[in-house]
């Protein structure tokens, strides 16, 4: 007589079948928190207000938020804030625009032809090794201490950052797509338009976001060392008169600049690269 062996049925793990539409991938980052990005600043602001109200903060070290708001109003009434803002924005925008055009153009030249690569890539790599802010003294000697040298420095920083990312994007196209283009008989121009450039766009966007950040950093440095106008100059003067509140206003404006420009780029990236499905998407 054969003995019948009982095999225990495997234990089943229950997954909620009805929850499918709203379910998130397990290794994803989870549901995006609404207005998640402003959460951090709001918490910080609350802590700052509480500490000031409780008298924990010496106003000479860090003035209360309402003092800062008052300062903003005073500066706007005097016209100083608008003027400084415009000057700073103009520098940043001009430098960024020039740098972006030059950086992308050089990346295209170097990424799309061997001759261009030989001519451009070598010295861009050298340039990259030299911290651009280290060029400030030289640029002052060459261009004087006016607007031109500030714009040039920002443009250089932006151009190099963008060049590196875009060039990397252009030269790292998947070989499988090159083969496809060959078997389909694309000519060079079409290949560049249909395969190389779209393939380099993600790299370009990384470059843009890095470049925006570094252009703000350069702006801060430039305006605090050698300027007679702009947000940085305002802060520099405030330091002389120990006006902490004005310094805080300057910092907040710099922060807003950075935050808004990055947000704009993220939005553009989402639009342009809508074909991508990434973890954060």
């Amino acid at each position: 007589m054969a003995t019948v062996q009982m095999i225990a049925p495997p234990t089943l793990r229950r997954t909620p079948a009805t929850a499918a539409p709203g379910r998130r991938r397990r290794l994803g980052l989870g549901r995006p928190i609404p207005y998640g990005r402003v959460l951090g600043p709001v918490v910080l602001l609350a802590a700052w207000s509480a500490a000031s109200a409780a008298g924990l903060l010496d106003p000479r070290v860090l003035p209360a938020p309402w003092t800062v708001v008052g300062t903003v109003r005073r500066l706007i009434e005097a016209g100083t804030l608008q003027d400084s803002l415009l000057v700073s924005l103009r520098r940043a925008a001009l430098g960024f625009a020039i740098g972006a055009v030059v950086g992308v153009a050089l990346a295209l030249v170097a990424g799309l032809s061997r001759l261009g690569e030989a001519v451009v890539d070598g010295w861009m790599q050298v340039q990259r090794a030299v911290p651009t802010l280290g060029l400030i003294p030289l640029m002052i000697l060459w261009l004087g201490i006016g607007e031109a040298f500030k714009v040039v420095i920002i443009a250089l920083v932006v151009a190099i950052t963008l060049y590196i990312q875009t060039h990397a994007g252009l030269t790292s196209i998947d070989n499988r797509y090159v083969e496809l283009a060959e078997t389909i008989g694309l000519n060079r121009l079409r290949f560049i338009r249909a395969v190389v450039l779209p393939g380099a766009l993600p790299g370009l966007f990384i470059g843009l976001r890095l470049a925006v950040t570094s252009s703000w950093i350069s702006l801060v440095v430039l305006e605090q060392i050698n300027a007679t106008s702009g947000i940085g100059y305002l802060m520099f003067q405030a330091q002389n008169y120990a006006q902490t509140d004005v310094i805080v206003v300057g910092l907040i404006i710099y922060g807003l600049f950075g935050f808004l420009s990055d947000a704009a780029l993220r939005l553009a990236e989402r639009r342009v690269l809508s074909w991508r499905r990434t973890l954060s998407g």
Binding site: Y177, L180, A194, P198, L273, W275, R276
Partner: peptide, 10 residues
Amino acid sequence: FQDSRLLPWR
């Protein structure tokens, strides 16, 4: 090819 090689951006 073994993979479709569709360009993801088209």
